[in-house]
């Protein structure tokens, strides 16, 4: 049934695209709303009739996975949720995958955010992934959340030398000195790995500039697709690897599934999104091709005239 629905949708999309091509070749203008409708049908149908593909991690993602995998048990890892709901669909799967991986490897997790909107999303990850999937994890001993502080790079410039100067308490109002995880932690330099997740400013770039480089702390960012190409120049010296967009998240999820049986029933939103993503890419490529065919045809007709 699913396949029939999928083929039916693909059929409609192909016929529609051909109709648009024919219409364009006649020199008529296509209303933008028809293009919008196409995008909607494409994404909605591939969501409705599930399309999933296997993923193979690329080297740049594998390096992040291997880093977390090979750190000794109890290593300190900081995850910064520097994003808002607008970026959530592509970066939240990364955040959840990182949380799962760190917890299963029994690393010590420090969670914070430089975005006010990141605080609720940070909480969501803790409540919906960390606590239910790792019920034995103890707050303060295995993980802790520092919450949000305003100021962006101002915050980073302080925590690179002193956490306590910036955070008198954790998110719940407990003084840092009473939290076992902070017993031997003075600054961000004491972290073994930092995983900033986001796609704006302050975000992964600021973490590299203001913490990673001066503190010599390894950084592995999870990035929204829009900014991922901008961060490539920092790889591999200033960022040990990176996850770019939903594809990067899907690769990481697939690597988790491949390596850990306990995650076989886990939610894999990024992998599920790759079906609609693929279909939408095809439609956009088709639009570019149709647009160009029309353009060259018109140009030739004008030249002949």
């Amino acid at each position: 049934m699913t396949n029939i629905g999928l083929y039916f949708s693909i059929g409609i999309i192909v016929i529609g695209l051909l109709a648009i091509l024919r219409y364009s070749l006649k020199g008529k203008d296509i209303d933008r709303r028809i293009i919008f409708l196409f995008m909607f049908i494409t994404v909605a149908s591939s969501l409705l009739f599930k399309m999933e593909f296997p993923e193979k991690p690329t080297l740049i993602v594998k390096k992040v996975f291997n880093k977390i995998e090979n750190l000794p048990e109890g290593s300190r890892i900081l995850i910064s949720f520097d994003f808002d709901p607008a970026m959530k669909p592509e970066v939240m799967p990364m955040a959840n995958a990182f949380v799962r991986h760190c917890m299963v490897k029994k690393h010590k997790l420090y969670i914070m955010t430089l975005w006010a909107t990141g605080q609720a999303l940070m909480l969501e990850s803790i409540e919906e992934v960390l606590k239910p999937e790792f019920p034995d994890a103890v707050y303060g001993e295995d993980y802790t959340s520092l919450g949000f502080k305003a100021g962006g790079v101002g915050v980073l410039n302080v925590i690179i030398t002193d956490f306590r100067k910036m955070y008198a308490t954790d998110e719940h109002g407990t003084p840092l000195d009473e939290i076992p995880l902070f017993a031997e932690v003075t600054s961000a330099k004491d972290m073994d790995l930092i995983l900033p997740i986001g796609g704006g400013a302050p975000g992964p770039k600021e973490w590299i500039l203001f913490v990673g480089d001066p503190g010599k702390v390894p950084i592995a960012p999870g990035l929204a697709a829009v900014v991922a190409p901008l961060i490539y120049p920092y790889y591999p010296k200033q960022a040990i690897g990176l996850l770019g967009g939903v594809k990067g998240a899907a690769e990481y999820e697939s690597e988790l599934l491949r390596n850990y049986d306990q995650f076989k029933d886990m939610d894999t939103p990024a992998l599920s999104m790759m079906g609609p993503q693929t279909m939408a890419h095809i439609v956009i490529i088709a639009f570019i091709i149709i647009g160009n065919i029309t353009y060259f045809r018109k140009r030739r007709m004008n030249d002949n005239a």
Binding site: M39, F40, V43, A44, L47, L48, K50, A86, M87, K88, P89, E90, G199, A224, A225, V226, A228, P229, L230, G244, G245, V246, K247, P269, M273, P276, Q277, A280, H281, I284
Partner: peptide, 29 residues
């Protein structure tokens, strides 16, 4: 490359919203 990644990112956001509408609200997926 930036254009390709931008398209990818924007579509992800649309998928996210439609997942909410079709899943959480309408219960279709």
């Amino acid at each position: 490359a930036s254009f390709g990644y931008t398209v990818m990112g924007r579509i992800s956001l649309l998928v996210g919203r439609l997942t909410f509408i079709m899943g959480d609200w309408l219960g279709l997926i």
